[in-house]
């Protein structure tokens, strides 16, 4: 479903701030895979997701989604294959627009935007039902401006928007990191439900190792711009947080303990 072949990306090349964010990274996801991604700060987790999403083009290597070469495709053109939820709740929604308008924008992802009504009555009913599943009381607030919602509500809405039109690949970039633990659990729960219901191929970054172990069928660990550990199936189910810490110390020489991941 997704194939990343040997991609590299260097930011601020040729300056003192030069940073090699991705270093010949390769990763292959089969249809229906739910892969969690962990790694320390600056390991290149978000950079990998942004490369797949096409926020900028990679320096070398290529990316295929469902066998289509998207390496050179503009971000807005790739959007038809992708559902995305970001770390910052402000990023995924248009604050000055209504809940239903945001959903209507998302349901037209990848389609031509014409002079037809931006939102139809029939759609409204569908949105109301979908919002009910989130269980946040948003179904009665269809015309509320999204800017008035809490961070958790906005993330849940973004999640719904990302999956409203079934994506080939769902990209979740630490989408619960900015939420309080209770809301984070609720959003993660909704994520699990939606992903398993629609059998979505998913790539989820998290800084919470327990979440990384509990969710998904496969786990990868990144370090210095590439993948250093890849585990799936029964082996993943038996995984403990201590195993991950040990694994990380093995490759990095023990800096992991200072990282925020251990706090969780």
């Amino acid at each position: 479903m997704l194939e990343i072949r040997e991609i590299s990306k260097t930011f601020n090349a040729g300056t003192v701030n030069e940073k090699k964010a991705l270093d010949h990274l390769s990763l292959r996801l089969e249809e229906g895979d739910f892969v969690t991604v962990i790694g320390g700060n600056g390991a290149g987790k978000s950079t990998m997701l942004n490369a797949v999403a096409g926020v900028w083009t990679v320096d070398e290597g290529s990316i295929f989604i469902d066998s289509v070469d998207v390496t050179k495709l503009a971000e807005y053109r790739r959007a038809k294959y992708l559902g995305r939820v970001f770390q910052d709740p402000m990023t995924g929604t248009a604050a000055s627009m209504q809940i239903e308008e945001n959903l209507a924008l998302a349901s037209r992802r990848g389609a031509m935007r014409t002079l037809k009504r931006g939102i139809s009555r029939k759609e409204r009913e569908i949105y109301r039902k979908k919002l009910q599943i989130l269980d946040l009381g948003l179904e009665d607030r269809l015309t509320t401006k999204v800017g008035l919602l809490s961070g958790g509500q906005r993330q849940a809405l973004t999640l719904l928007m990302a999956t409203l039109k079934k994506p080939k690949l769902l990209l979740l970039d630490e989408h619960t990191a900015a939420l309080d633990p209770k809301t984070a659990a609720k959003v993660l729960d909704a994520t699990d439900r939606i992903v398993s219901q629609d059998r979505l191929t998913t790539l989820m970054i998290t800084h919470n190792m327990k979440d990384a172990i509990v969710h998904g069928n496969r786990l990868v660990m990144m370090y210095e711009g590439h993948i250093i550990y890849d585990v799936s199936g029964e082996e993943k189910k038996r995984l403990q947080v201590s195993d991950l810490l040990h694994k990380f110390e093995e490759v990095s020489g023990g800096t992991f303990a200072n990282d925020r991941m251990i706090l969780n």
């Binding site: 999403a53 971000e75 807005y76 053109r77 959007a79 038809k80 992708l82 995305r84 402000m90 990023t91 995924g92 929604t93 248009a94 604050a95 000055s96 627009m97 308008e101 209507a104 924008l105 998302a106 037209r108 992802r109 990848g110 389609a111 935007r113 014409t114 002079l115 037809k116 009504r117 931006g118 939102i119 928007m161």
Partner: peptide
Amino acid sequence: TELGCSIRATGSNANMSRAQGI
């Protein structure tokens, strides 16, 4: 309209708009 909404979305949040294929 769909087209007009995409202009409003662009002004409101350009990153989100591109993520939604605008």
